[in-house]
Amino acid sequence: MAAQLGVYPRKPSAMAELFGTEKTLVGAVHLPPLPGSPSYRGQSVAELCRFAVEEAQAYVGNGFDTVIVENHWDLPFLKPGEHGYEVAATMGVITAAVVAELGAKVGVSVLSNAGQCSVAAAWAAGAGWVRVNQWANAYVANEGIIEGQAASTTRYRHAIGADPVRVFADVHVKHGAHAIVADRTLAEQTEDAEFFDADVLIATGSRTGHPTSVAEVVGIRDHTQLPVVIGSGIDPTNVGPLLAECDGAIVASAAKENSRWWGRVDPEKVRAVARAAGR
């Protein structure tokens, strides 16, 4: 941690390992409902793979560096430990199709907060990283009480030989009341996530698509030696000032045809974000 550099040795940058670029732009591939979801309508896994690859190509072909694959239409979200075998299997196969196009810099996020399932899918697919929203502490979310996944996920990752998979962990998690009794400051939550062995920290707004404040980014950056990326609310108007304070951004809503997370990726909107970021 930044305040105790003599105690916690600095890790090699996971951003440099994975991407080799400065100010990395990551597009979010929001998959249709998957097998096991109440809204699943029987599409073949091959069809779902084609969708994911098309979305990924729309991002990377228009100025972004890579993507993260998410089961964002599996609503309502299950809590960690409740996901069936079909989720890890389907996410692994779909992500592998994207990895075949883009390489190991692809990420995986199984919602909600399913660290072990995400690691299983990423390792099977050859993906390099996962996003876990609540890594340390706990919070009250739409799904109920969500506990940090660091202890179980790191042990599972090691048990299956997936130690190379890096963890991008949110700080001050969106969609919830933070730390139950709100007695953990932003600085403390940042230090907790680093102490629990995250590799990259994520700053977000309060909901999907809501802007992340510069103050939030700086507040996290100033209390960690890990890379920091933006996790929500990036658009052409704010990408420049926000990227100036961190190492990258995950973008979705601003790149969609309807400016909402559930739309298809619009190549021109992707280019607009990339241009504003100096690409």
Rank of each mutant, 00 (worst) to 15 (best):
R131M: 01
P12K: 04
K105P: 02
N71Y: 04
F19W: 11
V181S: 12
A177R: 11
N258A: 07
F195S: 03
G20S: 11
T224V: 03
P32A: 05
A124P: 01
V214A: 03
Y85Q: 12
R207V: 05
G240F: 01
V130S: 03
P32N: 00
V93T: 15
A96V: 09
V60I: 15
F51H: 06
M1T: 08
S37M: 11
A96C: 10
W129E: 00
M91H: 11
N238V: 08
W262H: 06
S112G: 13
E147T: 14
G6C: 10
A136I: 02
N113F: 01
A150M: 11
G20K: 12
V119E: 01
H210S: 03
H172V: 03
C117S: 07
A179L: 01
L243P: 07
Q116M: 09
V69M: 04
K174T: 01
A127F: 00
I94T: 10
A177V: 08
V60Q: 14
V171S: 11
V110R: 10
K79F: 02
V53A: 12
T185V: 05
K11Y: 09
S259P: 02
D199K: 10
G115H: 08
G126M: 11
V273R: 08
V53H: 14
G233E: 03
N113Q: 12
T24Y: 07
V273G: 08
A136W: 09
A169P: 02
D74V: 02
I145S: 13
D170T: 07
C246E: 12
Y139K: 14
F195H: 06
G278M: 05
P33D: 03
K23T: 06
A124I: 10
N113G: 11
L186P: 04
V87K: 12
P241H: 13
W123E: 02
G248F: 04
S213G: 03
A58E: 13
D65P: 00
S253K: 09
V273C: 07
A138D: 15
T212I: 00
S213E: 04
G42T: 04
G233R: 05
D197S: 10
D183G: 15
V110P: 04
L201G: 07
G219C: 00
K256G: 03
V26C: 00
R166C: 01
G84L: 15
K174R: 03
H223E: 08
G278D: 15
E22T: 07
T208L: 10
S109L: 03
G115E: 06
A127C: 01
L18D: 01
P38N: 04
V93A: 15
V167M: 13
S232W: 09
A114V: 09
A179P: 09
D197H: 13
L5M: 14
T237D: 15
N238I: 08
A3S: 05
A104G: 06
L243D: 14
G92R: 13
C246Q: 11
A120N: 14
C49H: 04
G205D: 02
G63T: 10
K256C: 05
P32S: 05
G36P: 06
T95V: 08
T66A: 12
V273Q: 13
A254L: 00
A162H: 08
Y85A: 13
Q4C: 06
W123P: 00
